[in-house]
Simulated scan of single mutants.
Amino acid sequence: CDPELAIELRERYPEIEPGYHTNKRLWNSIWLRPSIDDKVICDCIVHAYSEVLKKLPRIKREPLSELLEVWKQKK
Rank of each mutant, 00 (worst) to 15 (best):
D2R: 03
E4H: 10
L5P: 00
L5E: 08
A6S: 13
I7Y: 08
E8S: 07
E8C: 02
E8Y: 09
L9V: 12
R10S: 11
E11P: 03
E11V: 10
R12D: 05
R12S: 14
R12M: 13
Y13H: 11
P14K: 10
P14Y: 14
E15Q: 15
E17P: 05
G19I: 02
Y20P: 10
H21E: 15
H21A: 08
H21G: 03
T22E: 15
N23P: 01
N23F: 07
K24T: 07
L26T: 00
W27A: 07
W27T: 00
N28C: 01
S29A: 09
S29C: 06
I30R: 02
I30E: 03
I30W: 06
W31G: 02
S35K: 11
I36H: 05
I36T: 06
D37H: 08
D37G: 00
D38S: 06
K39T: 08
I41C: 01
C42Y: 13
C42V: 13
D43R: 11
V46E: 14
H47P: 01
H47T: 12
H47E: 13
Y49S: 01
S50F: 07
S50D: 07
E51L: 01
E51C: 11
E51H: 04
V52M: 15
L53D: 01
L53E: 01
L53F: 03
K54W: 00
K54G: 01
K55P: 00
K55I: 07
K55V: 04
L56T: 00
L56A: 02
P57V: 11
P57A: 10
P57Q: 07
P57I: 06
R58N: 14
R58T: 15
R61E: 05
R61V: 01
R61L: 02
R61T: 04
E62P: 04
P63T: 08
S65K: 14
E66T: 10
L67C: 09
L68G: 02
L68C: 07
L68K: 10
V70N: 05
V70L: 11
W71S: 12
W71A: 13
K72A: 04
K72R: 15
K72Q: 13
Q73T: 06
Q73V: 04
Q73I: 05
K75V: 09
